[in-house]
Design a binder for these strands. Structure first.
Lengths: 343, 343
DNA sequence: CTGAAAGCGCTAACAC
DNA sequence: GTGTTAGCGCTTTCAG
């Protein structure tokens, strides 16, 4: 016997196929009695609607896509894990869309993809989350989307954000408490706006500090390991050099670590290094990277669930920022005494 | 105006829809004249068949799935990149299937998924590639699959393999040439058969070496960073300890590196460390991991293309193993002189 | 609130 | 070789 179809349910429940369809799609216009009867039969026969058929008729695909272009594999893979989990729960299929394209080519190819595949919705991570042109186009075409870790320039009800600013402050407080008075911060990619908030947190902390004052240097980064490495090459060549380097993500922090070890600096004796995100890498690089833990998998799952709720026409309330957590590993420690810092 | 459909092409080309369908599906029974005419119109109107409709009618989904359960995110993400690229070229959609399940639960959930989604084919990486029970079930159900980096116990025409044994030998030769005469090898997960071949290569090399003989210790691993770390804790506690540790993958090698640095060993002065795969991590850990480069992205792309060819009924010849390459970074160097190794 | 009829875009089955 | 017919499983539309 083949798989059970809507007609089988209808027959067994003594209703029309259309009524079953209404129940399956949670339409409100079904009496409680019928709904219950139909639901029982559905459960009995373990019925699941055929995605291709629904999709052909209704113009929806029941596919969600996740667009990414990230150098940070760990971040992406954990997000996918979370997204898939929400999709499975709700009968959606996840279709990854990895692309290196930028600007209007990105917009074009993403829109074409969404239309061709009749995507029900799109999930994004930075920097796409803050691509004004892309967001405008999606709004224009009425393509629903949910953003993971966007900046706050253009709030959207399906955003999943963390307490970036507070976390930036918390990490900086940690460094200040360890006695660091010359901190370099490697900023995130300028298109990645949430990272700007991390910097705000750093400033909050440093400016709150008065006695003695802390010197804060800000250096540009591009979120990649390589950009962290390059920043460190520059920062560590200076006299006096910072006693702590805080990078806006873990990949860059690992670049810093690499360069510092390359120069024979003792970590954390001569230099403290901190990152942000707590990707797996952070606990695999020696001597263990102090970082801000983000619930990456959960962020993906939440974003997908919000999007699905929205697609289904359910009421969706804007979500409070998810909490982060300072994870102290061994890359940070007491600041060297001043004379030690200038050999 | 909506999207162009098969009837539009048929009208413009002056043929029946069925003929257009035949052309689209590369069926042989179309005259060259008609085929050409139809193809021209298809190109003109930029027609692409509707996946949902084809799929509803033909019982195929035009979806490929990639099943994975790996601790190594970098490996997975690069494979996905390659697989997606082949899928896009051929009008297929990739649906990732990440699972932690094992044994018959894995078999059940994968089969159920394949059937429910009417998957056209399945891509796998170790250890699923060598799961006898799973392969038997897939064969039984006539589900086509392609395997990335399987062991050679059960050759299959859609396998994509690399020259694991030769590479294992090459790396060991490299260590021997550097003067190492006490090498520890951390083996891969026993369910991951391709890794057994790497070990064979190690043995080839060591046994070919006679003057002076090299001591080879073999230690079990589970492919994870943590298992590499544990192995190193044990191996480095011994007297005499090995002067080189070769791990069957990069994640484990990074665990070794971590433990060695933790003990204050100079790399490579007191200990050489080597890995296998050349995932991104290998070049991001300090001081840079010597490893065997595998063309990971290409492996994914090739596997997907083979699978699609096979699905389309095209002739598929078994593929020669893809070549690997020794990448020497700074984690390997001359063996310490004997007196230095026993402080 | 419920049901009947029609048809989404394509291809299997069959006819010519 | 090529075309015709029917129908995949569901939901839209419209009638009651």
């Amino acid at each position: 016997m083949g798989r059970v179809k809507i007609a089988d349910i209808a027959r067994r429940a003594g209703v029309s196929p259309k009524t079953v369809s209404r129940v399956v799609n949670r339409e409100s216009s079904v009496s409680d009695a019928l709904r219950e009867r139909v639901e029982r039969v559905i459960a009995q026969l373990n019925y699941e609607p055929d995605r291709q058929a629904r999709s052909l008729r209704s113009g929806r695909s029941f596919h969600l896509s996740f667009a990414y272009a990230s150098p940070s594999s760990y971040f992406v893979i954990n997000l996918i894990e979370g997204i898939r989990s929400a999709c499975r729960r709700n009968g959606y299929l996840l279709v990854p869309f990895e692309t290196e394209e930028k600007g209007s080519r990105l917009v074009l190819s993403l829109l074409e993809f969404a239309e061709r595949e009749r995507l029900d919705g799109l999930l994004m991570m930075p920097p796409m989350t803050d691509n004004e042109q892309l967001l405008a186009a999606l709004d224009e075409e009425n393509i629903l989307y949910s953003r993971i870790a966007p900046g706050d320039q253009r709030p959207h009800e399906l955003d999943v954000v963390t307490t970036d600013r507070a976390a930036g402050r918390e990490m900086t407080d940690h460094l200040l408490q360890l006695g660091h008075r010359h901190i370099a911060y490697i900023a995130g990619h300028p298109d990645h706006l949430a990272m700007a908030q991390r910097l705000e947190g750093v400033r909050d902390s440093v400016h709150g500090q008065t006695n003695p004052r802390c010197k804060l240097e800000i250096w540009p980064g591009r979120n990649t390991f390589e950009s962290g490495l390059e920043a460190a090459q520059e920062l560590l060549s200076r006299q006096p050099r910072p006693t702590a380097i805080f990078a806006a993500n873990d990949d860059m922090a690992c670049g810093v670590l690499f360069e510092a070890l390359e120069r024979g600096l003792r970590i954390p004796g001569e230099l403290s290094v901190a990152g942000f995100d707590d990707i797996v890498l952070a606990s695999h690089v020696w001597p263990g990277l102090t970082t801000i833990h983000q619930p990456i998998r959960e962020m993906g799952e939440t974003a997908a669930q919000l999007l699905i709720d929205r697609i289904s026409g359910r009421q969706v309330d804007a979500l409070a920022p998810l909490p982060t957590r300072l994870v102290v590993r061994r890359s940070t420690g007491e600041a060297p005494r001043v004379d030690a810092a200038r050999p």
